[in-house]
């Protein structure tokens, strides 16, 4: 009897067969494998903050310092007072500006490089 039950169950299961949902395509799986191989860069908020600081805030500050050295700003100007309190001279402002420009250029090169990598895949 047990064999008959087994035979019948084997038959029913084989008729039932296996099926996969239409959404689960081989291409979808291959894409996931590729995504693991070359993960998309994760945007870290701290890094974004540091870059914004280096690329926007510092150059602005440096610009005003340089400007102040060349053309005297009004004493009442808030930025001018703030810059005075920092005690930065002309040469250190230029150095700061150069560092910021270097970071911006480096970032642009880096961004282009990662984009071309992504296109190649």
């Amino acid at each position: 009897m047990k064999n008959k039950i087994d035979d019948e169950l084997f038959e029913l299961f084989s008729e039932m067969g296996v099926s996969t949902p239409k959404d689960l395509t081989t291409e979808k799986i291959l894409l996931k494998i590729r995504a693991v191989e070359k993960p998309e860069p994760i945007i870290n908020p701290t890094v974004v903050f540091v870059y914004l600081f280096l690329c926007v805030a510092l150059p602005t500050l440096a610009y005003f310092i340089i400007k102040k050295e060349v053309i005297d700003m009004k004493e009442s100007d808030i930025i001018s007072r703030y810059i005075n309190s920092l005690n930065l001279d002309y040469s250190s402002s230029v150095t700061l500006m150069v560092i910021c420009i270097y970071v911006i250029i480096f970032q642009i090169i880096n961004l282009n490089h990662s984009r071309s990598d992504y296109n190649c895949s």
Binding site: T20, P21, D23, L24, K28, I29, K32, I33, V36
Partner: peptide, 10 residues
């Protein structure tokens, strides 16, 4: 099950 199937193949 779909998600796990993909992960299995990865």
């Amino acid at each position: 099950s779909e998600e796990v199937t993909q992960d299995v193949f990865v």
